[in-house]
């Protein structure tokens, strides 16, 4: 899957968690803009992990602040 496909998939996965319907760009932050709390993060990460059959450990999550960083990380994990 190329970056555009990964982006499209994650965009659809994020929808149920984007309660306020915020417009998502690569710069959108999870904690600040989307106001994800730790429970939302767990459910959202689980949805992505299941879709792409990958693990995003908490250590890796700590490095991911924006939507763009997440898409990049998933692209990389998929190819590992």
């Amino acid at each position: 899957m190329n970056r555009a496909d990964v982006d499209t998939k994650i965009r659809s996965l994020i929808e149920p968690f984007n309660k306020k319907g915020i417009a998502i760009t690569d710069q959108t932050t999870f904690a600040g803009d989307l106001e994800f709390d730790s429970l939302t993060v767990m459910d959202f990460v689980a949805a992505i992990e299941d879709e792409f059959d990958i693990i995003i450990s908490m250590n890796q999550q700590a490095e991911i602040e924006t939507y763009g960083q997440l898409v990049d990380a998933v692209c990389k994990l998929q190819n590992d």
Binding site: M42, A46, M58, N59
Partner: peptide
Amino acid sequence: GCALGNAEVVPFK
């Protein structure tokens, strides 16, 4: 204990 060590930490529901 997880935070003090260097392992990859993976929580589940």
